[in-house]
């Protein structure tokens, strides 16, 4: 967190940063730390956390270590929802219409995915359906941007599909945070039900868990969190997949106990990635989503190798 505040194009000493954070320093230093770096760090933490939490929740819901929002196309769908609203025109990108549209789209995508996959979804079906949805949403996003009269479509598409935390402000924080908190609260309140689900849906139901309603709540929680995040930062992928796995060796496999650590790991991951994109020397800004994908995809492939037996058998 402090590192995130301390690193940027303008070099400030840690002391100057702390000073500026608490109202000291020059006006310029205060603006740089309070208005530019602080909202970016807060968004990095909040978005990383909700992505990690969503990943853990989906893995718990589906009892499947390969589940994650980005593999299911939720961020891509959310980006499409947001872009559609922008393309319809006349709407400020800083208005609440954006996260709401993103949330609706994310909800629809996860809902459709789980509906397609059915009750006892195999890994393969889930991933294939997720791939289809995310490709479709990505293409729809690009098309919508192209069809809108925005001549800078190419750049904007890159933003929505790859995600970035650059130059976000407190207005963005205010836009995303209520939804992220609501989503996190919903998911956290269901955590014990996810543990009961490790006995299978039938047993969980017999223990008093309303599995159908749990699914809806989980989808709603993920959609709120991911939609809110995507509306201000674009589709940042793979945090939700990686974070729970990083925590399992330390915390164990209990889906309920894994949730808070996954959120922390997600926050740390995204913050680190966002610091890294500022440190890597480059001619233009690297999108943070590029970095998370660079880390996430090889990790995903490694998981596939590990889960190959289950995948090959088509049962999860």
């Amino acid at each position: 967190m402090l590192a995130s505040l301390g690193i940027g194009p303008v070099k400030l000493s840690p002391v100057a940063v702390l000073d500026a954070l608490f109202g000291g320093g020059s006006e310029v230093q205060r603006i740089i730390v309070q208005d530019i770096r602080l909202p970016r760090a807060i968004l990095g933490l909040a978005i990383g956390a909700i992505l990690g939490l969503s990943g853990a929740a989906l893995q718990g819901l589906l009892r499947n270590p390969l589940a994650s929002p980005s593999l299911f196309g939720a961020p891509q769908a959310a980006a499409f929802g947001a872009v559609l609203v922008i393309a319809l025109g006349g709407i400020d990108v800083r208005s609440f219409a954006l996260p709401v549209a993103a949330i609706v789209a994310a909800f629809a995508s996860v809902f459709v995915l789980l509906a397609i996959a059915g009750r006892n979804a195999s890994l393969l079906i889930l991933i294939l359906a997720g791939l289809a949805i995310s490709s479709l949403a990505g293409a729809a996003t690009s098309l919508t941007m192209n069809l809108s009269r925005n001549p800078f479509a190419a750049l904007e598409i890159a933003f929505w599909l790859l995600g970035s935390l650059e130059d976000r402000s407190f207005r963005h924080v205010m836009l995303a945070l209520p939804f992220i908190i609501a989503g996190a609260a919903i998911l956290m309140s269901r955590r014990h039900a996810f543990r009961a689900l490790s006995l299978g849906e039938e047993s969980a139901q017999s223990l008093g868990v309303d599995v159908g309603r749990l699914r809806l709540w989980a989808i709603l929680g993920v959609a709120l969190g991911v939609g809110g995040a995507v509306a201000v930062a674009g589709a940042i992928g793979f945090i939700g997949l990686v974070a729970p796995h990083l925590m399992r060796p330390l915390i164990g496999y209990d889906p309920a106990r894994l949730m808070v650590p996954s959120a922390l790991a997600g926050a740390a991951l995204l913050l680190a990635a966002d610091i890294a994109v500022r440190l890597i020397p480059s001619t233009s800004d690297i999108k943070v989503g590029v970095l998370t994908a660079l880390i996430g995809v090889p990790f995903f492939l490694y998981l596939i190798v590990r889960e190959r037996r289950a995948l090959g058998g088509g049962i999860a």
């Binding site: 490790s198 006995l199 008093g208 496999y253």
Partner: peptide, 26 residues
């Protein structure tokens, strides 16, 4: 009703005691 379905699915490597404790969930 305590209900034991066929095949005793256990999806995560939870400690046996935690599995048994799930019986107290209701």
């Amino acid at each position: 009703f305590a209900y034991l379905p066929q095949g005793h699915q256990m999806h995560w490597p939870l400690p046996a005691r935690d599995i048994v404790a799930l019986g107290r969930y209701p």
